[in-house]
Computed example of a mutant assay.
Amino acid sequence: MKSLKIVFFGTPEFAKTSLEAIHQSIHQVVGVVTVADKASGRGQKMNQSAVKSFAVENDLALFQPEKLRDEEFLAHMKALEADVFVVVAFRMMPKILFEMPKIGTFNLHASLLPDYRGAAPINYALINGEKKTGATSFFINEKIDEGNILLQEELDILPTENAGDLHDRLMEMGAKLVVKTLDGLAENSIQEKPQPEVETPKNAFKIFKENTRINWGQPAETIFNFIRGMSPYPAAFTILKIGEEHKSLKIFKGKFEKLESSNHTGTVEINKHTFKIFVGDGFYEPLELQLEGKKRMNVKDFLNGFRDYENITIAVD
């Protein structure tokens, strides 16, 4: 099999796993492109991406352009004479860049395209109660996540896993799919195909804080899926009323039960041993949560922090 020359574009841990898999394959990583280091935290310490850390540790040629249209950066990319650019969890690329390699530029996306195009495919697959998801490698074009499919693999979603769990399983599966795609391109054995036309594709738009509040007017199972789809990040939240105080409460994990008849939406049954939030068709029972100003904890420790349970309610408006 021919060894392909690769330039890899990526940023987080999800991308690093694919880069590592390529580095361990017969293919040659001739360049790595990632974001510039950013200051974060109280001390504004400079942090580097997971992809940069791997590139530095393995002496790979590293590029951190501020702008992807920068002429000097584009000249560097052209000089590398790569066969393929591989993109995993990176930003939008200009046409002048993604058309540069001989074979083309392909992206790994954590869904079964054309469904769940966008920034948060893992979250939305869970939020929508899907039973399966997967990963897709596809050639990049000028439309987001709409290029011709190269390879696609399915993955069953486990009944209680959250977005973090599914992320990790897709990360490992996706890394293997990237290498499999490179092998297929090297052997010229992949027949690329246009994405199926879908009248109403399921979208995975970027999640903002205002999208993370729990709607207790929904069915118990819908709430359960929403919370696990937001866990551990960005985390679903509700407003807990403690007397006259209103505090944000993040919920990371829980269980639900359907009932033939239920109390009013948002009614709380809470005491030293129980925390149930009733909805139209049953109740949701938080198991791991974090009250504003406190650390994340299990429900037993959370309940032990209260004495006057009668003054605790959920704000549903």
Rank of each mutant, 00 (worst) to 15 (best):
A110R: 09
L158N: 08
I96C: 02
V29L: 05
K95I: 03
E187A: 12
P114G: 08
S18I: 15
E72D: 13
A39Q: 15
G43I: 08
F226L: 10
I312C: 04
K45N: 06
E13Q: 11
H23E: 11
F139T: 15
T136G: 15
V32A: 07
K295L: 08
E257L: 04
N203H: 07
T160P: 05
E245W: 11
K295S: 12
A61M: 09
D156Y: 04
Q24G: 12
L287P: 01
S189T: 11
S18N: 10
A79P: 03
A15E: 00
T313W: 04
V33T: 03
F205L: 13
E221Y: 09
R307P: 10
E244Q: 14
G174A: 13
L112G: 04
D156R: 11
V33E: 01
A315D: 14
L177N: 03
P114N: 08
M230W: 14
V86S: 00
M297H: 06
I223M: 10
L240Q: 00
F302N: 05
E197K: 07
E245R: 10
E20A: 13
V198Q: 08
G118L: 02
M1R: 12
T238R: 14
R169L: 15
K241L: 12
L240T: 05
V87M: 00
G282T: 02
N58L: 06
T17F: 13
S3D: 15
K209L: 06
E172G: 05
L155F: 09
S40Y: 11
S189K: 15
H109E: 04
L62F: 15
Q191F: 04
K132W: 07
N58S: 10
P12E: 06
P196F: 03
T11N: 02
S49D: 14
Q48G: 09
N141A: 13
S49P: 12
S137N: 09
S262W: 09
K52S: 14
P201R: 09
